[in-house]
Every structure is written in C-alpha cells, then in structure tokens.
Simulated assay, not measured.
Amino acid sequence: MSFFKHESIEINAGLLIALTMVVISIGGLVEIVPLFYIKDTIEKVEGVRPYSPLELRGRDIYQREGCYLCHSQMIRPFRDEMLRYGHYSLAAESQYDHPFQWGSKRTGPDLARVGGKYSNEWHVAHMINPRDVVPESIMPSYPWLMENELQYADVADRMRALKKAGVPYSETREEYQANVEKFGQEAADKLNILAAEQYLVAEAQAGNFDGDRSRLTEMDALVAYLQVLGTMVDFSQYEEGHFVEFR
C-alpha cells in the first residue's frame, strides 16, 4: 500500500516539488530558529576589531583581484590544518567581515594566519612575481599593484556602508567613546569615519608596506591587509601548541 502512495508522489511532478520544498523548509527552520534563542552565537574574544581604513582598502583590492578564489581564510579544527596554519578559525574573527572570506576551495594555502609570518618585502616580491620567493608557485603576478596609486577619497563612504551592516565605525562623540572603551584609544582613532583619510595616509607612511615612502600605492593597502590577518587575537591564551611555519 505504501509503495503505491510513494509511486503516486513520484509521478506527480507538482506534488513532488511541493513536498520537497516543505521538507527543505522544515530542515532550514530546524537549523535557523534555535539561533534566535541563543544569547551568544559568537564567542567573546578579546582583540578583534574592525579594519582600519588602510586595511579596509586592502581588503577591497584583495576581493577585486579575486584572491579569495584560490585562498581561504578558514582553518578547520583538524590536527593537520592546525599543525600547518595555526589555531582553528573562530567565528568572532569574521564578525566584522562583509562578506567573509572563508572560501570554498584552496589552490593556494589558507591565509587566516598569514599576518606577521613574512616581511613586507616578502609580500611585495611575492605579489610582483611569486616565483621569485616560491619557485613552484602557480599564482599569477600582480605587478600593477606597485604601479597603481591607491584611490582612497571614498574610504569614508565605504566605512559608512559597513556601519549600516553593523560594523562599529564612529561618526559621533558617543560612538567614538564607545569604541575607546571597547577597542582602546589607538584603534578607536582609526575607526573614526570623519578622520578616515588622515589615518589611512598616516598608517601607510608609518608602515611603509610597499617599501616606497614617496608614493601611496595599492600594494601598501594590500600588504597592510595581509599583515593583519590572524594577528588580532592572542591565541596563546586559548591553546598552547607548536604550529608549523606557513608554507
């Protein structure tokens, strides 16, 4: 008897589609609804802050050049990944990312912990011609990053757009003070939309990310972004262990 009922569903395309949608909807609700009743879906981790104006522009260039297509920024909680890349990724690390850069495949290594592992000079050489530092690399070259002047006149507007998505950039004194209490004075200054261009230029000059202080290039911004990845959280307080150097 059940066979005939099952067959009647399979031969009726409209009914099959409707019942499939019902099942998918129930499954989706089972996964999503509980999140609305959990007070903290993101673990509390000290150190995570929104990107500075220069880092933000670097992230924009990272996305523009399609770096996310070959590099993920999500270390899974497996021993082999943690031995190679470091502590597994935390949800809190992506709370200000719009969109996040977790990725769905890896042609190159994961970049979630690449910040501070190599010098600025290494990154510049790697972007201009990857084979100069990694002979077996199949990554394309990006020499124009060193040639292109960084466009940052609209960085304040970019920050305002992210603010609407929930990123705590500040425009009022109250918002600024809240950031001082949450992230500290130095970080709060860089999160001030009204002074975005000023701090972008100052950070680029102080960091000298592309090795040429006479110009502000797209390489400055991209290297600044890469150098901050995985450096905001002190993972030594969460788990001790030896991690193999990023390769």
Score class of each variant (00 low, 15 high):
Ser94Trp: 09
Val45Glu: 01
Tyr62Phe: 15
Met74Thr: 11
Asp97Phe: 10
Pro50Arg: 02
Gln101Val: 12
Arg76Ser: 09
Gln101Asp: 14
Glu81Tyr: 13
Gly103Val: 09
Gln101Met: 10
Arg59Val: 02
Glu93Gly: 14
His71Ala: 10
Lys105Arg: 15
Ile75Leu: 04
Glu46Thr: 11
Arg76Lys: 14
Glu55Arg: 09
Leu54Gln: 01
Arg57Asn: 07
Leu54Pro: 00
Pro50Ser: 11
Val45Asn: 00
Gln95Val: 13
His71Val: 12
Leu83Lys: 13
Met82Pro: 02
Leu111Arg: 05
Val45Pro: 00
Arg84Trp: 02
Ala92His: 01
Gly58Tyr: 00
Arg106Cys: 08
Gly103Asp: 08
Val48Phe: 02
Arg57Val: 11
Glu81Cys: 02
Pro77Thr: 08
Lys105Gly: 05
Asp80Ser: 12
Arg113Ala: 07
Pro53Tyr: 02
Arg49Lys: 14
Ala112Val: 06
Arg113Ser: 08
Arg76Ala: 09
Gly86Trp: 03
Leu56His: 13
Tyr85Ala: 03
Gly108Lys: 03
Asp60Ser: 12
Ala91Trp: 08
Lys105Val: 13
Pro109His: 04
Gly103Thr: 13
Gly86Val: 11
Arg106Tyr: 07
Leu111Asp: 05
Gln95Tyr: 04
Cys70Leu: 08
Arg106Gly: 04
Pro99Asp: 06
Ala92Tyr: 03
Trp102Tyr: 11
Pro53Phe: 03
